[in-house]
Simulated assay, not measured.
Amino acid sequence: MSESLFCGTELAARIERAAVELTIAGTEAGRRRRPEAAGFVRLIGGGAACFTEPGSPLNKVAGLGFGELPSAAELDELETAYAATGTPTQVELAQLGDPALAIALTERGYRLTSFENVLGRVIEPGFAGQVPAALEIERSGDDELDSWVDVMVEGFAHPDEQGVASQEEFPRDVLAAVTRDMAAVSGVRRYLARRDGVPAGAASMRCGDGIAQFNGAATAPAHRRHGVQTALLSARLADAARANCDLAVIVTMPGSKSQQNSQRSGFQLLYARAMLIKS
């Protein structure tokens, strides 16, 4: 049983900083893949505004609310940059961030579209994961990258119906490209789960500043409800312990099967993020 974890503004700021770093790294990988595209990374208010290509889940402003509030001029410039790409400005706003930011964005015409939950758990030194005998979890090498991407995209393209449905839909080709971009980020570890020898699930993890970011996991529809996601969580927690991380963080849709599996694995709900969009 993991120890109880209280999340105040300092811990939330630490988690959001890690999320910003990962978003920037994924965006930069996308810009290397498509140097001709008009991608950008702009630092603002302690966070970052990123754009890679139309339809990408990385097109967002992350990490605001834990630094100096952006000025009206800075927000004008940001919204103009997104408008030039034909993309709405989407801000991820953590519940524990400065409430003045939510007021400012609402006054500018941003509308609330959805929420996501940030969960975490303390990683005990020496944690050893358990994987059911019917499953095999291995680090995925470069020779398995295509299989890993295929499982991730197939899982994301067919979200579980439990909980609140996501309001976002992404083209499969864009999902595949972004998945490869995130896999190319320095320090990202890939995991492939096999059930009866068949690729059944995929996941990734990035460690930094003592935080293990469980930044992607998917189970192929035909292999759901067989403990694949729980086994991937357990394997990553064990690796995170060996990497001397003290905290594991995962992001899920509210009320989803992923949230349920995470909480069964010792994760606790820390805070929510609101998705605010201005077209």
Rank of each mutant, 00 (worst) to 15 (best):
G126L: 05
E169T: 15
P221K: 02
L232I: 12
E124P: 10
R189H: 13
D196K: 13
S256K: 14
D76P: 01
V249L: 09
G216C: 03
A235D: 02
A274E: 07
G67Y: 00
E161S: 13
G45S: 03
G197L: 07
G67Q: 09
E36N: 06
I44C: 08
A134F: 05
G65F: 03
L237Q: 10
Q130V: 13
A37H: 09
G129I: 01
G86D: 03
G163W: 00
A19E: 12
A193H: 04
P99T: 05
S166Y: 00
R180Q: 05
D239N: 00
E136Y: 04
E36Y: 04
E92I: 06
M205N: 02
L232D: 05
T89N: 06
Y110V: 00
L22K: 13
R189M: 11
G255I: 07
R139E: 11
R139T: 15
G187V: 02
Y191M: 06
D143C: 01
G86K: 03
L175I: 08
H226N: 14
A274Y: 08
L64Q: 02
C245R: 01
A19Q: 13
F51M: 04
A240K: 08
T89C: 15
A272G: 08
G210H: 04
A104V: 10
R273A: 08
L247C: 10
L233I: 15
E154S: 08
L5M: 04
V251M: 14
R14D: 10
E169G: 14
L119W: 01
M205R: 06
R108Q: 10
A220P: 00
C245T: 04
R189I: 10
Q260T: 14
G46A: 01
H226V: 09
F267H: 11
A184W: 02
E144A: 09
F66N: 01
A102N: 14
R206H: 13
P159A: 06
E74L: 04
P254T: 04
H223F: 14
A134S: 12
V249N: 10
A177P: 04
Q259V: 04
T230Y: 07
R17P: 09
A102W: 05
E28H: 08
G155M: 00
V228S: 11
R33N: 13
L64E: 06
A176L: 03
K60H: 14
H158D: 12
E154V: 07
G216N: 00
H158C: 06
G63I: 06
R139S: 11
V20A: 07
A100S: 10
A128M: 10
N215Y: 01
R111N: 09
D209G: 13
V131H: 06
M205D: 01
E168F: 14
R111G: 12
E74P: 12
I277H: 03
R32D: 13
S114T: 05
Y271V: 05
A202F: 04
A176V: 04
E68G: 07
S4M: 10
E161Y: 09
L269D: 13
R31Y: 00
L269A: 15
E154R: 11
S186L: 06
G39P: 00
T52C: 02
V118S: 08
L22R: 14
A84S: 07
A18N: 05
T252C: 11
D98E: 11
